[in-house]
Amino acid sequence: MRDPEPGHFRRPKDLSLANWDRAPHNRWTYQHISDFLPTGPIASGEPMALMAADTGLDLAALTFTDHRGDRVNAAAALDGSWTDGFLILHRGRIVLEDYRNGMRPGSVHLTQSVSKSVVAALAGILHHQGCLPLDRSVAAYVPELAACAYRDATVSQLLDMTSGVHFPEDVADPVSGIGLMDIAVGWKAAPPGTTSPRTVRELVASLRRLSRPHGQEFEYRSMETEVLGLCIEAATGRRLADLVSELIWRPMGAEADANFAVDPEGYAIADGGLSASLRDLGRFGLVYAEDGCANGRQIVPEQWGAQTRAGDASLFPERYRADRPNGAYRNQFWIADVDAPVILALGVYGQMIYIDHRRDFVGVKLSTWPRAINPSMRIDMQNLMGTIADNLSSA
C-alpha cells in the first residue's frame, strides 16, 4: 500500500479557518501556509551541500517491531502513514530521501510543534552569548506581563515546560487552553459573541491561574514556547524570524527560505508556526547530532546539546509514562529514554525529527495524518527510525 489517501494537490474549494488543518485539507495546506495565512520569512543563505551515501539501505527488506510488538515491514509502514517527506542522514550524508503528496526538494511544510525545538535552539545560542540568562523571570524580560501567572516563571522553566501555569493542552476547547491559542494566533475564528484574546501577547497577559508551584513537574503546554518567544524578542529587540535566519538558518547552510506563521500583530507563532524544507530540517537535526556544528561552524553551543540530552525523569509525571516509562522533556525536545538519550522534535499530524547523537543519525518525517495525535503511529515511526539507525550503524 502506498499513500493511503493521496492528495490531489490543489487548493480545496471549501478551505476555511474551521477546516484548514484537518483532513483531508491538510494534505494541501501544510505545504501552502503562506497562501492563506500571514507569514514572516526566514531567509536562507549559501547552502551547505548534503552528499549522498551509498549504503544499500532497502526499506522493503527491513522489518521492525511496531507498537503491538509485531514485526512489520518498514516500507509498508512508511506507505501507510500519510508521508509527505522522509529523510535519513547518517554521518552527515543522505542515505534516503523520499517525497510524496506533491512535495519536492525546496518545498516547505508546516512542522507544527517541531517549531518549539528550533526556538529552543535559538534560546541556547542567545544564552551562550549572554543575552538570555535562564534564571531571570518572565516579568524581568517583559514587564507588561508582571500581572499574569507567568510573571515569576524563569526562562529555564519555560524551556523545560515546568512552570505551574494552568493552560490545558489536551482538549481544543474554544473557550480555554489550546482553543484560545488557536484564536489568538489567527488559526481559528472566535465563537460568535465571545471576547477571546486576539493576539498571543493578549492571551499570555490574560492568564492568572496556577495549577502548581513553578518547577515542580513537567506538563506539555504550547504556551510555554510562546512566552519563551516573547522573552527572546524582548531581550534582543529583534523578531524571532530574523533571529532564526541570522543565527541558525543561514549559518547552518539552509538551502530554502523558511517561514513562521504570524499572529495578528506580526508575532511569530513560536510553538507551531514554522514551515521548512525536508533537507533543512535534516540540517537542523545534524546540528544536534554533531555537537552543535554544521556547515563547518559551531551553531548551537556543544554544552547546550549535551544538556538537552540530559533530561530529568523525576519531573516526568505518570500521565506521560504510558509509552515513555523512562522519558523526560528538556529544552523543548522529548527524550524517550533518559538512559539512551535519543531526542525528538515532534509535531501533531505526524511531524518528527529523530536525533541519535551517539550514532550521528538523523531521521525526518513530514506527514499529514488524518488525526492530530496518533500515539500508535508515532511509536511505530520512532521504532522505524531506531531500526534504521541500528541497521546503518552495524553495516
Rank of each mutant, 00 (worst) to 15 (best):
E5A: 15
R11W: 06
A18L: 15
R22F: 11
H25S: 15
T29E: 02
G40T: 11
A49E: 14
A52M: 06
V72P: 02
N73V: 01
A74V: 07
A76R: 13
L78G: 01
W82R: 05
G85P: 02
G85M: 02
L87I: 11
R91K: 13
N101W: 02
V108T: 08
T111H: 05
Q112L: 13
V119E: 07
C131N: 15
D135I: 10
S137T: 15
V138F: 04
M161A: 06
G164V: 09
V165Q: 13
L180R: 02
M181E: 03
I183F: 03
W187D: 13
W187E: 11
W187V: 11
K188V: 03
K188E: 11
G193I: 06
R198V: 14
E202V: 01
L203M: 09
L207H: 00
R208F: 01
R209E: 15
E219M: 07
M223H: 04
E226G: 05
L230P: 08
C231V: 03
E233H: 04
W249I: 15
R250F: 11
P251Y: 09
E255R: 09
N259P: 08
E265R: 07
G282E: 05
R283K: 14
A289F: 05
R297C: 14
P301G: 09
R309P: 05
R330N: 00
V338K: 00
I343F: 00
L344M: 15
Y354C: 13
D356V: 07
T368K: 02
Q382G: 10
L384E: 04
